[in-house]
């Protein structure tokens, strides 16, 4: 479990770093997919099988493909992101903010001894059937709200993307 954690964490952080630093947009998306895979592996390691599969299905199968489509549709077929951004004031400020955030979170976690002493629960996975029952039981209201949200997002995305075409005619 130890080695698995460190290896997967390394892959995850590497994927995340490459995703925001590479110059070629398509390479960024491919690194992002590596990152998503790492996160999914973490979920499997944490015995959340269902979430892991959902992560792969939604993030790699849908979100990453959507981003690839967006890159191709913005006439940026080779994926080159234009001239390299200069390491200027903005870059330093951004990195400083990020480093401070990371430091703050680490400090908070370290300072709170509870996080260090907690032990994992018994090694049992939540059955998928329980999640299904949860959706139509306790969690019915958020579930329906999610359905409305996704429908609205679907229609909204179509309307936004189609707008200019309609004006042009």
């Amino acid at each position: 479990m130890d080695y698995a954690f460190w290896t997967i964490s390394g892959i995850t952080v590497l994927g995340a770093l490459l995703a925001v630093t590479l110059r070629n947009l398509v390479h960024c998306v491919l690194s992002l997919i590596l990152f998503f895979l790492g996160i999914a592996a973490h979920y499997f390691l944490l015995r959340a099988d269902f979430i892991g599969a959902v992560q792969i299905l939604i993030y790699i199968g849908a979100v990453a493909v959507l981003i690839l489509f967006a890159i191709m549709l913005t006439r940026n077929v080779t994926g080159e992101a234009g001239p390299q951004e200069v390491v200027g004031v903005k870059w330093w400020i951004g990195s400083l903010c990020a480093a401070l955030t990371a430091g703050l979170i680490s400090f908070a976690v370290r300072a709170d001894s509870v996080a260090e002493t907690l032990s994992p629960g018994p090694k049992a996975t939540v059955a998928v059937a329980d999640i299904g029952k949860g959706f139509v039981g306790n969690w019915i209201v958020p579930f329906e709200a999610m359905a409305v949200l996704l429908t609205a997002a679907l229609i909204g995305a179509v309307v936004i993307a189609l707008e200019e075409v309609r004006n042009r005619r």
Binding site: A53, I56, I60, G61, V65, V128
Partner: peptide, 21 residues
């Protein structure tokens, strides 16, 4: 796997990436 079929769908979506790459 207790997520059997879902695993198959999750994995099969990944094959599209190979075609794109």
């Amino acid at each position: 796997l207790n997520i059997g079929i879902l695993f198959a769908f999750a994995i099969s979506t990944a094959s599209v990436l190979a075609l794109f790459m």
